[in-house]
Structure formats: structure tokens, C-alpha cells
Simulated assay, not measured.
Amino acid sequence: MLWIVPVLAAVGLMGAPLVAQTKPQAVKIGFINSDAVIEAHPDYAKVKAVRDQADKELKPLQTQLTQLQQKIQSGQASAKEQQDFQTLRQAYNDALKKWATRTEEAGKPLTDQIDKVIKKVAEDNGFQVVMDYKVAQASSLVVYAADGLDLTAKVIEEVKK
């Protein structure tokens, strides 16, 4: 009967899963200032021109809306002014959508290229994750980052090639 214990122990060891003892790999996270990268792109002037056109159309509408809204809030607006406010607000929202679409269309080739450059720079420098400073800060996702993790200059250099 004593021979059963060693046999059962050996069988038990054979049935145990063999797990490789691997050391956890550190994840290297980098950051970029995406606004700076976009503004440094050689074709940024095209996007800026669209944004400037949008501002030229939207700012007067916004000024009129603000003035009418102040009158409405103070109780001094006539029925016609209240109706004008509704009509103007719809025109503003329509123009805002139009310009958002145009800005996105103008910026898409830039952002597509920049995304590829970010991937290349990250891979070349051993980064597994790259985050935007503003997003990380606004979300409170990152509370500390060591020096040397900013890839903005490297991405700008590569974008300008």
C-alpha cells in the first residue's frame, strides 16, 4: 500500500499544468500634442482656410444670437424677435454642421497621414501606447508622466518629411 502514495503523487504532477514563468513586460506610453502636430503639417493652411471661412460666416450669426438671447432673457423681446431668434438659431446650427463637415473633409488627409506617422514613430521608439496630452489631462486618466515620453517633436519632424 505504501507504493500507492508515490504513484499518486507522480500522476498528480503529470496532470498539473506547466506554466512558464515569464516576467511581465512593461508598457511604454508616450504622449503628443496633436494640435501642434496638425498645425506643423505642410497642408495645414488648407484646413486653416476652411476654419477661417467658417468663422467669417458663423461669428456674425453668433453675435446676433447673443444679442437676441439677452433680450429674450431680460423679458424685453417682442414676439417677432423671439421668432427671429428661433430662425437664426436654426440657420446657425445648419451653418455649423456645414462647416464642421467641410473642416473634417479638409483635415482627414492630414489626420490619416499623421496617424501613420505616429504609429511609425511609436514603433521605432518602443512605445506601445501614444496618447494626446489634452485628452489624457481632460479625462484625468494620467496624473503623472515621466520626462522623455513626449513624442511631439519626433512626430512633427517625420510629418514634415
Results as ranks from 00 to 15, higher is better:
Asp55Trp: 04
Gln64Phe: 02
Ser78Val: 08
Glu81Lys: 00
Arg89Gln: 13
Gln53Leu: 12
Gln62Ser: 15
Gly75Thr: 14
Asp94Glu: 07
Ala54Val: 05
Lys80Leu: 05
Glu81Leu: 02
Leu58Arg: 02
Asp94Trp: 00
Ala91Tyr: 04
Gln70Thr: 06
Asn93Thr: 08
Gln76Gly: 12
Asp55Arg: 13
Ala95Asp: 03
Ala91Glu: 10
Gln53Met: 08
Gln69Lys: 09
Lys59Cys: 03
Asp84Phe: 01
Ala95Tyr: 02
Ser74Asp: 05
Ala77Ile: 04
Gln73His: 06
Ala54Gly: 14
Leu58Trp: 01
Gln90Glu: 04
Ala91Leu: 08
Gln69Glu: 15
Gln86Gly: 09
Gln82Thr: 11
Leu65Asn: 01
Lys59Ala: 02
Gln62Phe: 11
Lys80Asp: 05
Gln67Lys: 15
Leu58His: 00
Lys71Asn: 08
Gln82Cys: 00
Glu57Trp: 00
Gln70Asp: 15
Asn93Gly: 03
Thr63Pro: 04
Ala77Gln: 06
Ser74Trp: 12
Gln83Val: 09
Arg89Tyr: 02
Glu81Val: 04
Gln82His: 02
Tyr92Met: 09
Gln69Met: 10
Ala79His: 01
Gln67Asp: 15
Gly75Ser: 06
Gln82Asp: 11
Asp84Gly: 01
Arg89Met: 05
Tyr92Ala: 10
Gln70Cys: 02
Gln83Leu: 13
Ala91Ser: 12
Asp55Ser: 15
Ala91Trp: 03
Ala91His: 14
Thr63Trp: 07
Ala95Gly: 10
Gln90Tyr: 11
Leu88Cys: 05
Asn93Ser: 14
Asp84Val: 01
Glu81Ile: 03
Gln83Glu: 06
Lys56Ala: 14
Asp55Glu: 13
Asp84Ile: 01
Thr63Phe: 10
Ser74Cys: 06
Gln70Phe: 07
Asp55Met: 11
Thr87Leu: 01
Thr87Val: 06
Leu61Asp: 11
Lys56Trp: 09
Leu65Gly: 15
Leu68Trp: 10
Lys80Glu: 11
Gln70Val: 05
Glu81Asn: 05
Glu81Gly: 12
Gln64Lys: 02
Gln76Ile: 15
Lys56Ser: 15
Lys59Tyr: 09
Glu57Pro: 09
